[in-house]
Nucleic acid binder design. Structure first.
Lengths: 74, 74
DNA sequence: AGAAAATATTCCCGATCGGGAATATTTTTG
DNA sequence: CAAAAATATTCCCGATCGGGAATATTTTCT
């Protein structure tokens, strides 16, 4: 999906987490973050840290894509 | 591109900004952030806020996609 | 080469992130 | 429906984000 806002991002993360039948607590443990961060992130808190956010995204097997850039290949 | 890290994300943002021949200062004005944030973000600082990061991404005409999720259509 | 432009660093400081625990509330399950 | 499970809220507090200005450094342009 195209993500426009922290809220949408949080919703995508929550959706995926539920698909995987993982609790917020488990996800926090997997990512090495606190539960609080996961809750905040899923609710779309705009001030969450991008680094931790990326960790969560990857822990859920999601890919974070930037489109429209011609950056060099990874 | 697939973004794995804040560093890669920052690099993509910087690359795009230069393609558009925009200075960091201008970008900061456009996004309503401070210059400092832009500099930090482009250098891959992991603790930058996701909300401001998304603002920058959109200001640069980039699209930010979460792939692997079956979230409802936007 | 030198000047101008752009970027990076440093400073100050108010606001607040986020870890982790306790607890309240909501959701899920049998 | 009640209990269990999951999520959300609140608390404390050390660490630090980020605005904006000044300044140092690097890059770009002629």
């Amino acid at each position: 999906m195209i993500t426009q806002s922290p809220e949408q991002l949080g919703a995508a993360i929550r959706t995926r987490r539920k698909e995987l039948k993982v609790t917020q607590k488990d996800l926090a443990l997997t990512c090495g973050t606190g539960l609080r961060f996961i809750i905040d992130l899923e609710r779309g808190k705009a001030t969450c840290q991008i680094g931790k956010t990326l960790q969560v995204i990857h822990a859920l097997g999601l890919k974070f894509l930037i489109a429209g850039s011609s950056a060099p290949a990874d």
